[in-house]
Design a protein around this nucleic acid. Structure first.
Lengths: 229, 229
DNA sequence: GCAAAAGTGTTTAATATACACCCATGA
DNA sequence: TCATGGGTGTATATTAAACACTTTTGC
């Protein structure tokens, strides 16, 4: 079923970088390719956009088709279009990135991939195309963004402890933070809801659980509030 | 000269949002379209990417072809791809934005546009396609970015006064700043070079001129420095 | 001499940093 | 009872904010 145009057109794909936090390791979802080129190699989940398909819809669809992951908030990262980045010819890819609570999301090889799974960003297999560069940019964006937008909460379960939150920042920013100062600062922001519950089944004093007050955050943003950690 | 592919492909274009500062007004470069659709309407400079052409190259080329503006630093903003944004069919556009010193850059209608010029962002003509939405996003990015990256300097002449710099921040952030506090803060950053020169031909006390110390900025960034105003 | 913008310091409030011990729990 | 992580306060240093007058220059 050939499609003919008066001028040459590049192919357009989407790729997804989905980060998760496993204890103190930052991980990313990769799939093993089922199709040529680079069959069996590891890659970011992604693929061609459909006819008259919106970019974000395509990203969500491809992610679901290859990893089974659904209902994940994806945000556009960057568009890569260097000729030569794909051996099949001029291909432009729009990269999306998302953050999930790793324990609550388990990628599995869905229809369009041989395997799918979480990989530590520090121990990656070789990636196809320019996916290593895309991932690198996603990591930089994550580091930059986490300081002034409350995106970190996406990486945690809905209910989390202050220590988990602190470790998250320590992992992403790659530096240690003072416990007392961190708690003071976070609490003072007024964006955490104290659930008046504690952890269960831990072999030490159980920590209080908190959730992120997204409603209040949105209210504050409306009034010009700027989140900073 | 028809081009045939096995699967449907969207068109891909680039659009440029170039901001300039005119006294206390933020302005943007627009062109009057020479071709259908929307002939004679105002639009952001832009057009189709070429065969095997890199995205940033295409943006620079289109900007030069339509406005004559060259050697302008452009940065990728966002990619817009909603089906329906272009009546000719599925068209994805990669938007770039740039900042220039308005007095030093005069857009003129080059080969691919009927007219070209600076428009105040507060007094815009009706724009074609979704260019109004693209511009809105560019403005938001500018506001967000100016606080933690020294991009504002791009909007000023190489030699500028502290008052000019302050007015720049006041214009972009849409609020007034205290002169003494602003000066203290900016000087303390250590990113300005005092040129030991003063304005000429002004009808009042001549102000000292400064330039931005980009070398030093890059050094500091290497060492983890974060710019904040 | 006056209009117009340049330039300059101090006080007070808020925030950031540094730092160490007791508490609760399960094994 | 001990190992493990949870939880807390204070003093000091740094930074932000508020605020008004004198200086220089051209006309």
């Amino acid at each position: 079923m050939p499609y003919t145009y008066d001028f040459p057109r590049p192919s357009v794909t989407v790729d997804c970088i989905v980060f998760g936090l496993d204890n103190k390791e930052l991980k990313v979802v990769l799939i093993q390719r089922k199709t040529s080129p680079f069959i069996d190699s590891w890659a970011l989940p992604g693929g061609f956009i459909g006819e008259n398909e919106a970019l974000d819809k395509a990203a969500k669809r491809e992610l679901a088709e290859e990893t089974g992951l659904k209902n994940i908030f994806l945000e556009q990262l960057f568009t890569f279009g260097d000729p030569g980045r794909d051996p099949r010819g001029h291909t432009i890819t729009v990269a999306y990135f998302g953050l999930v609570s790793l324990n609550e999301h388990n990628p599995r090889a869905a229809s369009d991939a041989k395997k799918a799974g979480w990989f530590s960003v520090n121990k990656l297999p070789e990636l196809v195309f320019d996916h290593a560069a895309i991932l690198k940019m996603a990591l930089e964006r994550l580091k930059g963004k986490v300081r002034y937008q409350p995106i970190g909460f996406e990486l945690l379960p809905k209910r989390f402890t202050l220590t988990q939150l602190q470790q998250l920042y320590e992992t992403i920013l790659e530096k240690t933070l003072d416990k007392r100062n961190f708690r003071k600062k976070i609490i003072r922001l007024g964006l955490l809801i104290d659930l008046n519950e504690t952890q269960q089944d831990v072999a030490h004093r159980a920590a209080r659980l908190y959730s992120f007050d997204e409603k209040r955050y949105l209210q504050l943003v409306e009034n010009g509030f700027i989140f900073e950690v």
